[in-house]
């Protein structure tokens, strides 16, 4: 009766294509604090204490907040190929 929506990834498409810079985690520097996970506006960073972080590049828009909030500068923003 009503056109309803259900939660699903990619409600605006494969938003990883929006990216100009790509966050790359230097896991050897990572102190597993979880701040990048906490502040990522996209929920594209997965984290459990002890497992360190993993970024879903299909959807990461490359905003760079994770790199900015990282207390040990373990995330680099690397230009995407072709940019």
């Amino acid at each position: 009766m009503l056109p309803l929506s259900k939660p699903a990834p990619a409600s605006a498409g494969i938003t990883g294509t929006w990216r100009t810079y790509k966050p790359v985690v230097n896991l050897s520097k990572c102190i597993d604090c979880g701040l990048c996970w906490l502040y990522c506006p996209e929920s594209v960073i997965d984290w459990e204490k002890g497992t360190k972080v993993r970024i879903d590049y299909d959807f990461c828009k490359g905003c760079g907040i994770c790199a900015d909030v990282c207390p040990v500068k373990a995330i680099d923003m690397v230009p995407e190929a072709g940019v």
């Binding site: 009766m1 009503l2 056109p3 309803l4 929506s5 259900k6 939660p7």
Partner: peptide
């Protein structure tokens, strides 16, 4: 539960933008 069941814990959304305007038109 008609026209929808709006309840905490039931993540149903009504009224966000349509992916295809024909969905809206049919509605």
């Amino acid at each position: 539960d008609v026209p929808l069941l709006l309840r905490p814990g039931e993540p149903v959304v009504f009224g966000n933008l349509p992916s295809d305007n024909r969905i809206h038109a049919r509605h």
